[in-house]
Every structure is written in structure tokens, then in C-alpha cells.
Design a protein around this nucleic acid. Structure first.
Lengths: 327, 327
DNA sequence: CTGTCGTGCCGGAACGTTCCGGCACCGGCG
DNA sequence: CGCCGGTGCCGGAACGTTCCGGCACGACAG
């Protein structure tokens, strides 16, 4: 079932069929309709390999997630959002594993563009991806040296953490603390900077402790115990990493604190762990599916030359207040 | 940088270059080495579109995950395992979102084969995938009508649940209960059946309650409260869904039970939620990354005609005993 | 009636690879 | 010396698409 078959059936040439179906070229409207109908009826499906060869595009984009992603449902949602958006432009999304360009073929001939989510300095695959010779969109900025400018979709982490701190202050907290992720990601940097700035402008220092980028509840529990032991006046804990807040709740319970009353708890990343906790935990909803969609959309726009390759867009977040801070 | 460029540089014809690099055809070993060297030095990368067109294969496989997967890090691990294995055969993995063959092109021209993980009867995308005209490997069996036989990698869920029940019995439990997932998946069916069988052969009925396929801790907590309220003699709870076991722990704590002592808790799916819980929860480790790898490997073998398309393989699990059952 | 222009369609050449048939060459045998 | 089989390499066709140049034809102005 090729273009030629359709052409024969419709009594026109393959060029006309191509033009008719593509919407390009000069084709009479009547012919176009007829061709479309014949193609539809014959169940014609363009051969993507031939199309890609001719157009010298691959019809696919690559998606790279942090190695730690294997733990976070956040990235799963993001991935599906990206797939949905890419699909609207007829693009496939191929999942990139650790040794990106190594074993398999060259990236450039396999994808038209790349989505690199939360690129960390320590991730050895990232430089190769940024330098693959295809347009790149990063989710959050890459803080390392970048050979070429890339597009990016960024969250205003400063604003969201500020909102969180303002919120707990509004609920009576006087000495908030932050469990910040380690690592040199844009996210980690922004949180630390914002905590310091907020402390400066509000007169009360924010106590900052470091936990792993992909902290487990156990990590958060241990960090919280140490934190509250060293400074019992802490009356609010903002736990940055996804899924770790339940650990804060456990530590609070163990230390006889009442979450929502004498200890407020919040998280910088919303997720099922926060919604399902007891009490449910106030969090910043980064809306991962929409975020993935936004990244894919930007890349599609860049590929279609609808926007310059170094475009930066913002992604909106929302504060979800729950009993862990509202009592 | 095409085959022709390499050919010119090496002073041979494009056919010879192709043969030399592919390892096919009759080429003198010396020529082969020289061509390889020239290609390497020139940084030649085969154009995948041209290759695919000529070979009429796409060089990619599709991966379909349950819609509920967006919650489970289990599937994320599985996906990465599959990607790694596929990469070893030079295949890309494209992520398939909900409306699989609808908006975008026809599946058959985009992928050489399909991985359909935990296919549920209720998933409307599944029949189309099974019927896409390419080899399919399912992770766990599909219980609905299948137009053509598919390959499958299965876990012995009966054996693993039996092992779990035997384990808690060995630790003194006399009245175990199961929080089984709803839905018509092979996994759900196997668990229910096994619970009934185990109860029959051990003289003590296993109490079975249904929770959502992708139950939250809150779901599990509520179910456990109802369970223990209706039957206080229950002394072990096996919680099937991934990530929900912490809810069982919360319910136990609220009802004054001591987990690991007068109430044993275990899960049918291991994950970070079990390892990081307090106390850590005994679980069946399905080794998702290895599982994904096994699925991809089977598909690769089928595509390479190394094994028949309806091959079924087993995947090994391991029981991880932790304080929630060992005290 | 002739020249010009625009519309609608077509033929053919690419895109880069694989693979088949065939040619030249060489050594061995009758 | 002529024939034959095998080895090593090559040319060309094909895969299915897109896109460019061009041709035929009708309309319209001069």
C-alpha cells in the first residue's frame, strides 16, 4: 500500500497524491478530496522510513530523565505529558537510557530534538546530549557549560518556595526550616538561595539541612530528628524532595510534635505521597504532566521554527494547602 | 558523511563499504579492516532512515504501560530495564501514550515490535496494540481475547504469594488477610486464586478485601481499618499494590497494633515505599528492571527469529524479609 | 488570431542504504 | 593451453517518499 497504489487507484500520479495528502503544491480542491477519499478507503499509511529519509528528519524526539528518576512518579507523569504533546505533532518519544550515544547509533540520526529534564551537573550523559547537534529543550536550566544555547522551560522555584514560607509564616510559624536537596541542579540552587533571601528579608533565618536529591522518607526522618534535636524551636519544616515528606511526619510523631499545630510540614514537590499522608501534606504542585507537555511543546515549536531555539518559557505552579499546615 | 564518502576515501565502492561494515558479503579481511578504520576516522554514522527504508524495519519497539503507571516507580524501573536491553540490539524504545494508533501514524510502520506491560482487560488501547501486525510481548498474560498468540514473560504470582503466606505463617500468623487489587489483570486473578487455594490447603481461610489497582496508602489504611474492625483476629496483612503498605502500618498504629509482633505486614510488590517505611516492610521483590530487561530480550529474540513468537518465559522473584514480619 | 500568464498535474531525480547478479582475476587441473 | 571454480569487488536497482522543473491547457488581453 504505497503512494503509487493510491495514485493508480485514483487515476493520478504519485506526485499529485503526495501533494494532495500533504496539503502542499498546487492541486485542485476536487482532486484533493478524491485522493483523500481513495487513500482513506485503501487504508493508505505513509511509510515513515521513506518519509524520514526524504525529509531528512527522524520524526522522533529523545527524552532524558535523571538517573534518580527511577524512584519518582513525578517524572513518569512528566514523561506521559511530553508523549501526549509530541504525538500531536506526529512525533514519537524515545526513552534514553544511561549510555546515550555509546552503544547504539548516533543520536543526531535517530532524533530531531532532545528533551533533557532536570539536567544535573554530575550527570555524565548530559554534555553529550547538549552537543548532539539537534535542538535541545531542558526542563529547568542546565548550570554547567553549554556549547550551544538551548531552549528551556523553567519553574519559578524562588516564587514557589517564597509562597510556601509566606504561607507557613501566615499560619503562625516563626522558625521555619528547609530540607534542601544536594547536588548542583538549578532547582537545588534556587531553593538554597531563596531560603537565604527569605530569611534575610523576614528577619528570621531559615535553617537549611541537606538531604539526598532523591531522598527517601527514611532520609527525611533522620534529617528531621537531627534538625529538631539541634533546634527545638523549629516550628515548620519544608521538605523539598518528592515523596520524602512522610518521613518528616514520622519524625514529628516520634518526637511528640503535632503536625499542623506545633509543627507545620510542607513539601516543594506534590505527589501521591503528600496527598495520601496523614495528615495530608501542603505542597507545591508542579503539575508534572503539564510540565512535560510544555517542554515537548517548546521543542515542537523550535523544530517547526515557530520560535527561536533559545526560547525560555515559564511553567506555572500551584500551592496546595492541606492539613499539615492548616491544622 | 555517507557510505559513498567513506567509499571514496577508502578507494573502494559503496557496496564494499556496506559489506565490510555489516560483516556480510565476501570481503577480504584486509579490506574490511581498512574500511573500518577509514569509517571510524571519518566518524561515519549510518543513516538510520535509509537503513530502515531499505531493510523495511523501523529499528524501534513500542512500550505500553498501564494508565495507572503514572503513580508507580515500579514501571519506571521496568521501562529503563527494557531500554537498556533494547539498546544492546540497537533498538530504540518509544513510549506509547493513551490514544496509541489514533492521532499519530500507524503503529506498524513506526515500530518493529511491541512491549505491553500488565495488560488489563479494561484498557481500551490494548486490543489495538495486540492487533497491530507486529510481534508483541506482554509482561504478564493478557486475559482478554487475543487475535494472535503473543510472547509473554510471566511472574509466578501464585508461588510468590504462597511464599509470603507461608512466611507469615512461619512467623506465627494464624489468620492472614490479603488486600487484593481490583481489575481483571492476570496478576489480580492469580492473587485471588492463590489466596483461596492457600486457605483451603492450610485449613485457615485467607480474608480477602479489594482495593484499587493503584491503591494509595490512604486506600490501604481505610481498608485495613475496616478489615481489623470486622475481624480483630487478623494477625497478618498482605497488601498487594505497590506503595500502599505504609497505609497498613498507619492503620495498625492507630488501632494499637504492633507491627512485626501482633500484626505482621507484607507487600506483594517491593519498592522504595516498603524499604523506607518504619518498620521496613517484607515484600516480594519483582526486580522490575530485570523484568523489563527480560521482556525486551524476549522481543529482541522474537524479532531476530531466535525463538518462536509465542514463547513464554518466567521471571524470577525474591522474597525480601524485613522487620514488619520478623519483629 | 496570436502571445502571455496562471492553474493543475506530471515525470524524474534525489535521499542513503542493502543486496543481488555479474565481472575480473588467479590457481589448479586435465 | 584451455577450462573451471572460487574469491574479491563492483554496479545498479530497489525501498517509498518529497520536491522541483516543466508541460499542457484554458482564459484573457492585445
Amino acid at each position: 500500500m504505497t503512494l503509487l497504489d493510491v495514485a493508480r487507484a485514483a487515476g493520478v500520479s504519485k506526485s499529485t497524491v503526495s501533494d494532495a495528502l500533504q496539503g502542499s503544491g498546487r492541486v485542485a480542491e476536487s482532486t484533493r478530496d478524491r485522493v483523500r477519499e481513495v487513500a482513506e478507503q485503501l487504508g493508505y499509511r505513509p511509510n515513515s522510513a521513506a518519509r524520514r529519509l526524504r525529509r531528512s528528519s527522524t520524526g522522533a524526539i529523545g527524552l532524558h530523565l535523571p538517573q534518580t528518576a527511577t524512584r519518582l512518579d513525578y517524572y513518569m507523569n512528566l514523561a506521559f505529558g511530553a508523549v501526549q504533546r509530541a504525538q500531536e505533532d506526529g512525533l514519537d518519544v524515545v526513552l534514553l537510557a544511561a549510555p546515550a550515544g555509546a552503544a547504539s547509533g548516533p543520536l543526531a540520526s535517530r532524533v530531531d530534538g532532545l528533551l533533557v529534564i532536570d539536567p544535573e551537573i554530575g550527570d555524565s550523559a548530559v554534555p553529550g546530549l547538549l552537543d548532539a547537534g539537534v535542538p535541545v529543550v531542558t526542563g529547568e536550566r542546565y548550570l554547567g557549560p553549554s556549547p550551544t544555547p538551548t531552549g528551556a522551560v523553567v519553574c519559578d522555584n524562588a516564587a514557589s518556595l517564597t509562597a510556601l514560607l509566606d504561607h507557613v509564616q501566615g499560619r503562625g510559624a516563626r522558625r521555619p526550616a528547609l530540607l534542601a536537596p544536594e547536588g548542583a541542579s538549578a532547582w537545588a540552587e534556587a531553593l538554597r538561595g531563596t531560603a537565604a533571601a527569605w530569611g534575610g528579608s523576614h528577619g528570621s533565618q531559615v535553617a537549611v539541612r541537606t538531604v539526598p536529591f532523591a531522598a527517601t522518607p527514611a532520609d527525611a526522618e533522620a534529617a528531621t530528628r537531627r534538625l529538631l534535636a539541634s533546634d527545638p524551636a523549629i516550628d515548620a519544616v519544608v521538605c523539598a524532595p518528592d515523596g520524602a515528606a512522610p518521613g518528616v511526619l514520622r519524625a514529628a510523631a516520634a518526637l511528640g510534635r503535632t503536625v499542623g499545630a506545633d509543627l507545620l510540614v510542607a513539601s516543594c514537590v506534590d505527589g501521591v505521597a503528600n496527598r495520601g499522608a496523614s495528615p495530608p501534606v501542603t505542597a507545591v504542585d508542579l503539575r508534572p504532566a503539564a510540565y512535560g507537555r510544555a517542554c515537548a511543546e517548546l521543542l515542537c515549536d523550535i523544530l517547526a521554527a515557530r520560535t527561536p531555539p533559545d526560547t525560555v518559557r515559564r511553567h506555572a505552579w500551584a500551592l496546595e494547602t492541606r492539613p499539615s499546615t492548616t491544622g
